[in-house]
Write a protein that binds this DNA or RNA. Sequence first.
DNA 1: TCACATTTAATTGTTCGCAATTGAATAGGC
DNA 2: GCCTATTCAATTGCGAACAATTAAATGTGA
Lengths: 152, 152
Amino acid sequence: MARKQSALDPQRLDNQICFAVYSAAHAFNRVYKPLLDQLGLTYPQYLVMLVLWERDDVPLKDIGEKLFLDSGTLTPLLKRLEAAHLVKRTRSSEDERQVLIALTSQGHALKEKARAVPQSILAASDCSVSELVAMKDEIVALRDRLNAVIGE
Amino acid sequence: MARKQSALDPQRLDNQICFAVYSAAHAFNRVYKPLLDQLGLTYPQYLVMLVLWERDDVPLKDIGEKLFLDSGTLTPLLKRLEAAHLVKRTRSSEDERQVLIALTSQGHALKEKARAVPQSILAASDCSVSELVAMKDEIVALRDRLNAVIGE
DNA sequence: TCACATTTAATTGTTCGCAATTGAATAGGC
DNA sequence: GCCTATTCAATTGCGAACAATTAAATGTGA
């Protein structure tokens, strides 16, 4: 039974959860794009803004830990957000190694304009909130198990 | 009840399924990295090889449709695979617009070396196969709904 | 046949994402 | 205090990812 075998073949593209996650991430990105264009943000920039809207004046390192990104990604990204007058970067006076990221008034104001984004995404998902929450929790749990393996 | 409110706030990072998917994709990538380094492949290159191991001598366009990638991504990627002697790119004689991608003998041979990869990923997932299959199917269904919205 | 639209890859420019390195600031042991 | 290790951000280089454009081949309708 060739069909049954291919349905179990772990080397088949369609059987790989990783490709499912990878392609879903790209699909989300394409849905977000037109929404975020109106805000003048890319998706990773939007993630940084979400972090800052929750807590302002945060070290770069903390943003990196929340988003699983390092300074090689964040430094140029934050410079672009600064060039767009959404954040300010200042060295901490207590610890000169740290760079603190603070919202500007424009950065604060953008939160209101961004309020409609999650609703649009929910609509595009065509799925109940409870289903999405359940999926999200499963995916987060899987991600955390994977990250635990890396940390070894 | 501040806690309950934040647990429902759709503008909070932790409540966004998209971030769950995005960060899980990166976590997978980090688990794959050391495995694929041994094969001399990046993850997107590995995906292309998976497609070719299923069916050889495929137009670039077909690879793009399977992986949801366009020529802007695939053309340079395939040139790198060609430089690594894993594939050959030739113009179709029936339709000169198309570029056909064929495995070299080295490209074929790599399939055997790659056989251990899915098992390592499964182990890192620390999860039963049936659970992973169920999650995969849910994520694929979500992805397809998102892609349907984009196509409108 | 000829004009026009469509399809397909390639190219250009911008932004991520990360490994590896560098350099400055801080912490800890002596 | 002094030497060393650690921490943190920035930098460099490479490989995606994608929008927008270009160019060539093919298809289609008058």
